[in-house]
Write a protein that binds this DNA or RNA. Structure first.
Length: 381
DNA sequence: AAGACGGGGTT
DNA sequence: AACCCAGTCTT
């Protein structure tokens, strides 16, 4: 049974793509490996709609791998701000320098070599090799995993190594024989997973469109489509508290560069206290002793910054939800009477007009806009 | 094998 | 509010 499916799969999929695939996206139909690479990295865990706006902007600012390699990583991060997973931007810059130094500015064609570059894993290496070089290299993103898990009714946990290995093997066996079919086939795979064989509303269950693999799909035949691939159980994300200092002096605000390892790595944010696991158990004691006033007083870790400053005039919370945690930021807005110079290069006063040139975490950018700290346009370059 | 790493769209 | 995503890297 499987034998037939494997033999006909790529042909059917390519035929489907001609009829129902996505087209006209700015990164499609381009064989320039640089353009392919940037689009693949930007599209990792990021919606097409988002990339649609950001990709042309990035390519205009960094048109070639040489220009990207020569740029300041801080400028690359500023361009990447808002897209998330900022290691992608740092790796993009490092990889560009690898290409220039070790490969004379030209991308290697071999997926095994591509995979050794910073930020390029096996699936992205396959995509670049297929789109740019017509290599018969498979991809295995979430779309392909879902398609294959359904087509072959794979019931094992998707994160299991043995299951993952078997998915790679299937993805390899399903490749079209003709190398020139690789770009269309690879695009078709992504399009089919993203628009037809979707996670929660696959077309085979809607009845409006006819899936070309309805008779081949083991999950469909056994009525397990929604059950496959098996969902990964996620733990509840923990909550944290921190204080942030919004220190203003004239037309400038104090920003602090975040370490690469941390969340928002490499971006410029407000100076902050260490994160503490959110623990509201103290509320009970405070409430029972009726000592409510002490609750409103901050436990000032930031007092070091407050010399030469007026006292904090307001403190308010911002809740920010990440994939794996939730952060409550208590913002202390303070006006400095005079600008304190810093020798630490990770701290600097940034004029409001230059905020747009810096990569800010999304909630911080929203905060600064919302407070009308910046006039219109100040955050836009 | 499991966790870290963002943000925005969909259901 | 939960779920999802053109993954990769670290531990």
């Amino acid at each position: 049974m499987s034998k037939t499916v494997i033999d006909s799969f790529s042909k059917k999929l390519i035929a489907w793509h001609a009829q129902s695939g996505r087209s006209g996206l700015p990164w499609q139909g381009n064989r320039d490996p640089y353009a392919v690479w940037v689009s693949e990295i930007m599209l990792q865990q990021t919606q097409v709609a988002t990339v649609l706006e950001r990709y042309p902007r990035f390519m205009k600012r960094f048109p070639t791998v040489k220009k990207l390699a020569a740029a300041d990583v801080d400028d690359v991060l500023a361009e990447w701000a808002g897209l998330g997973y900022y290691s992608r931007a740092r790796n993009l810059h490092a990889c560009a320098q690898q290409i220039v130094r070790e490969f004379a500015g030209k991308f290697p064609q071999d997926p095994a070599l591509l995979e050794q570059l910073k930020g390029i894993g096996r699936s992205t290496a396959g995509a670049i090799a297929a789109f740019a070089f017509h290599e018969r290299a498979p991809i295995l993103d979430a779309n392909v995993k879902r398609i294959l898990a359904r087509l072959f009714a794979i019931e094992g946990a998707i994160q299991d190594k043995a299951v993952n290995d078997s998915l790679w093997k299937l993805a390899t066996e399903l490749l079209p024989l003709k190398p020139q079919d690789m770009p269309t086939y690879t695009q078709a795979l992504m399009d089919f997973g993203a628009t037809w064989c979707t996670s929660r509303k696959p077309v085979c269950l809607s009845g409006e469109k006819k899936c070309p693999f309805a008779k081949d799909c083991q999950a469909n035949l056994s009525d397990q489509v929604l059950a496959l691939p098996k969902k990964v159980i996620k733990s509840k994300s923990p909550e944290f508290d921190c204080h942030m200092l919004l220190l203003r002096s004239g037309n400038s605000v104090l920003l602090q560069k975040r370490p690469d390892k941390a969340i928002w790595g490499g971006l410029w944010s407000l100076p902050e206290s260490p994160w503490a696991p959110r623990d509201l158990s103290f509320l009970k004691e405070e409430l029972s002793s009726s000592n409510l006033l002490s609750l409103t007083l901050p436990e000032e870790k930031s007092v070091l910054f407050l010399r030469n400053c007026t006292p904090p005039n307001r403190g308010f919370y911002i809740k920010h939800v990440f994939t794996h945690r939730c952060l409550w930021m208590q913002i202390w807005e303070v006006n400095a009477m005079k600008t304190i110079p810093f020798t630490n290069p990770n701290l600097k006063w940034v004029p409001l007009k230059q905020l747009g040139r810096h990569g800010l975490p999304q909630p911080i950018k929203v905060l600064l806009q919302g407070l009308s700290l910046a006039r219109d346009g100040d955050l836009k370059n």
